[in-house]
């Protein structure tokens, strides 16, 4: 089968030694198994994420994404941009649409890009990896790749905010998207459709600046997963993953709870279900070990 090619925007947090480097490793493994070729955008820059607005005004922020799209159009022409990070996807797509609807801003962005010899055509579709999986590959094909069904695992699908709003996945509702549950079932595990905190905010970047307020929300997410009998949580977003995983000890100390809930990426689940090693699935990147997944990977 011919490989599907995408222009890949990995984003800052996926770099080596950064907080979601495990996401990149597992996503690469997943893509190998699905015959997806990721062609990295050369010299991509930060998208400004959700909190770039304090220092960055409208044009500087949009120009960040315009540079990435221009580089992609120059080096990976004809290929859709795909991002694994929710904020990267959102910022890039938002910038592309804003510049399409505002010719004056687009002209200014191009004037700025000309300083580095770049031109924005802005004709490139911008996708989240989840869209590639669901729309381009499809559940049926994914199912045929499953060599180690994740049987017996009960998994809470935590979609979070930015993969879901404001753009979301076509055909899904903002309040109760189903795709993650469907993906969990496709891999042979049990989903938890009644998981109440599926689209609850984890605090995002405010987990850093407003830890107490954010941890109160994260506690609610963990509690709901736990009370619904989840063995682990799965998410498509790097900020959701980190926030839900790494503050559990602090939350336990504050609230007298006893959470030890593994939080993994969908790509980790898929890499293991597709028969790859714990290393390739980046299970080694779990701060809270996902022991039941590791057991399946060891079979």
């Amino acid at each position: 089968m011919a490989k599907r090619q995408y222009s890949f925007y990995p984003g800052c947090s996926s770099q080596k030694g950064a907080s979601s480097s495990n996401y990149l490793i597992s996503a690469q493994t997943m893509c190998e198994e699905l015959d997806i070729q990721l062609n990295e955008i050369p010299d991509w820059n930060c998208c400004g994420a959700s909190i770039g607005y304090a220092g960055g005004g409208e044009l500087p922020r949009l120009t960040l994404s315009a540079r990435n799209i221009a580089l992609s159009e120059q080096h990976n022409p004809g290929q859709s941009i795909v991002a694994t990070c929710a904020a990267c996807w959102l910022s890039t797509r938002e910038a592309a649409e804003r510049l399409q609807h505002n010719p004056a801003l687009a002209k200014d962005a191009n004037t700025a890009l000309a300083e580095a010899g770049l031109t924005l055509k802005n004709q490139t579709p911008i996708k989240h990896m989840v869209e590639v999986l669901i729309q381009d590959i499809g559940y049926d094909t994914i199912k045929t790749k499953v060599k180690r069904p994740l049987a017996g695992l009960k998994i809470a699908g935590y979609v979070g905010c930015q993969t879901n709003r404001p753009f979301g996945i076509a055909g899904e509702s903002f309040e109760n998207p189903q795709y993650l549950d469907r993906l969990i079932e496709t891999l042979g595990a049990d989903s938890i459709p009644q998981f109440e905190k599926k689209v609850q905010c984890c605090g995002g970047a405010l987990a850093f600046s407003e830890p107490a307020k954010s941890q109160e929300m994260i506690k609610g997410i963990l509690e709901s997963a736990h009370d619904n009998g989840a063995d682990l949580i799965v998410t498509p977003c790097p900020v959701c993953q980190m926030n839900a995983e790494v503050y559990q000890e602090q939350i336990n100390a504050t609230y007298g709870t006893n959470f030890k809930m593994p939080v993994v990426y969908y790509s980790t689940l898929m890499a293991i279900a597709f028969g790859r090693s714990a290393q390739d699935a980046a299970l080694t990147g779990q701060v809270i070990p996902a022991e039941k997944l590791a057991a399946i990977a060891g079979k």
Binding site: L59, P60, T63, T111, E115
Partner: peptide
């Protein structure tokens, strides 16, 4: 290309 990046962003700030 940090230099090019800075030039682009400086121009964007000026225009803003």
């Amino acid at each position: 290309d940090v230099k090019g990046f800075h030039a682009v962003m400086q121009k964007a700030q000026e225009l803003e």
